[in-house]
Design a protein around this nucleic acid. Structure first.
Length: 500
DNA sequence: CGAGTTTGACCTGCGC
DNA sequence: GCGCAGGTCAAACTCG
């Protein structure tokens, strides 16, 4: 993690008296060789250059410090996740044993009660689904109490990721969670019936595009419902962009264009061409009200490894999609029927510009990135009581937003540099050596809050970990938010590692 | 010449 | 059943 140093002009090294002591120390430690300044230059010019130098040096010092803190933070997040995961598995085992002792046949849980019921737990399994068919959750719940292995096979929720391969937690965590007996999280769609599943993801992988629209046989529909749900889940991104399409790092081939009702701007249809039969498609359409706003809607999961730049986008959209599918299971169908902000959004987890809609045949999550996430949006009172826990969860939308906003401004190679996970999480601007204020914003706000809430320098007390564990194990929405955050981080790290 | 784009036709789902 | 709208196909076209 190195910060690129670029000096506009060589000036004589001289510490400024008004510079912060720590910044001056850091700046003086930098391996910069200063040349003697031409004597013909005026004193005013020299002072101006020195001011510029000191400002740049201070900025570099800050960036370097924050880079170090981010490194520490990432390792802490990973270790905390592992510890929480272990504890979660313990809780799940206890819960299952208690359920076995009480009820031989578990009744199907009411979806509306999921959010507030601390006993309803979901697996924090990260990684991609295997190609094998997964049974619906309620099938398992209607069956008699099975062994732990049976439960893991049939009821495990795997959050779909856009990164088909290369997700850092994929294999290990699938095994870890697969070995546990996780209660069922019903992924049944609130808006799509079994008959409305004309696009099985795996079929699309194996068959030519033309056959993907064929209706599946009656037997396949039930088995693939979870995957179909994941595929049909869409992530729509609104971003200000002057180019015809948003540069998301993936290769797309346009296969159609249509004028849709209510919008004079044509909607373009693109297919991912990185892999021959990649099922991922996207629709691009300009906003009718503001033609500078580009609305890109992504659908499906990549069946191939993605370039680093595309991984950043895919992991973010997939995290949103995961939150969408997960969130739809923990909200009442009635409230979901008309498109609304999920409890996550209400709690500030999705940010003010995120909209979840399930009114259409395909549930869609819209990330409105036309305006940066407002700082005050991260300051809402924590719905979980503990300030630290609330703070940690609120880092999720900030990371998303800054990641997206920086995404459009950064070249694809931007994300291939050191510490790509954090680069994605915080928009890449920090670790990539850029000092663009808008790119630094997300990380700085994050760190500022870390300092204020975590006791300075990002130190997290053990009590915070306990609070996090309680919050995560007691609220499915929080679990989903954490999954999204970790998915985003690990997806980037794993994707970049797989590139090597 | 191959890859990508354009564009009219066709298919499918949905509401009336 | 009919019409509409969204989505997709595929032949024609363009471009490097």
């Amino acid at each position: 993690m190195e910060v690129a140093v670029e000096r506009p002009t060589p000036v004589k090294e001289e510490k400024r008296a008004d510079a912060k002591p720590e910044m001056a120390a850091i700046g003086s430690a930098l391996p910069i060789v200063f040349e003697s300044f031409p004597s013909t230059q005026s004193d005013a010019g020299i002072k101006q250059e020195q001011r510029t130098l000191e400002a740049a040096r201070a900025e570099m010092g800050e960036v370097r410090e924050e880079n170090e803190r981010l490194k520490t933070m990432l390792s802490r997040i990973v270790s905390q996740y592992q510890s929480l995961h272990t504890r979660f598995l313990d809780v799940v085992k206890v819960h299952e044993q208690a359920a076995k002792a009480k009820l031989p046949v578990a009744p199907a849980p009411a979806p509306a009660a999921d959010v507030d019921d601390p006993d309803d737990l979901v697996s924090l399994s990260l990684g991609t689904r295997s190609n094998g068919a997964r049974r619906k959750g309620h099938e398992r719940s209607s069956s008699s109490s099975g062994t732990a292995e049976t439960t893991a096979d049939e009821g495990q929720l795997s959050l779909g990721l856009g990164i088909a391969r290369g997700c850092g937690l994929s294999a290990d965590d699938d095994k870890a969670s697969g070995a546990s007996a996780a209660p069922v999280l019903n992924l049944s769609s609130d808006s799509s019936s079994a008959g409305d599943t004309a696009k099985p993801a795996q079929d699309a992988d194996a068959c030519p595009p033309g056959t993907a629209r064929k209706s599946p046989s009656a037997g396949e529909g039930a088995d693939d419902e979870v995957q179909q749900q994941a595929k049909k889940a869409r992530v729509s991104v609104r971003v200000k962009c002057n180019t015809p399409t948003m540069p998301d790092g993936c290769q797309w081939r346009k296969y159609g264009q249509k004028i849709s009702k209510g919008n004079p701007c044509p909607r373009a249809y693109y297919r991912c061409t990185v892999a021959p039969h990649c099922p991922v498609r996207k629709q691009v359409q300009r906003c009718a009200e503001d033609t500078t706003i580009l609305i890109s809607t992504y659908e499906g999961q990549h069946n191939h490894q993605l370039p680093p730049a595309a991984t950043a986008m895919a992991s973010t959209t997939s995290a949103a999609a995961a939150m969408l599918t997960s969130g739809s299971t923990s909200s009442s169908p009635a409230s979901l029927a008309h498109g609304h902000h999920l409890p996550l959004a209400a709690a500030g987890l999705l940010g003010p510009n995120t909209m979840v809609s399930t009114a259409a045949s395909c549930p869609t999550i819209t990330l409105d990135l036309t305006t940066p996430a407002a700082p005050h949006s991260l300051m809402h009172p924590s719905p979980y009581g503990a300030a630290a826990a609330g703070y940690e969860s609120k880092a999720v939308p900030a990371a998303w937003s800054s990641g997206y906003l920086a995404y459009g401004a950064a070249p694809p190679s931007y994300y291939g540099k050191s510490s790509p996970a954090l680069g994605h999480l915080f928009g890449g601007g920090l670790v990539g050596g850029s000092s663009r204020p808008e790119q630094l914003y997300g990380a700085q706000t994050y760190l500022q809050r870390t300092s204020s809430l975590g006791g300075g320098h990002g130190a997290v007390a053990p009590a915070v970990t306990d609070t996090l564990a309680k919050a995560i194990t007691s609220d499915p929405s929080f679990q989903t938010a954490l999954v999204a955050a970790i998915t985003s981080v690990m997806g980037r790290g794993g994707g970049a590692a797989a590139q090597k």
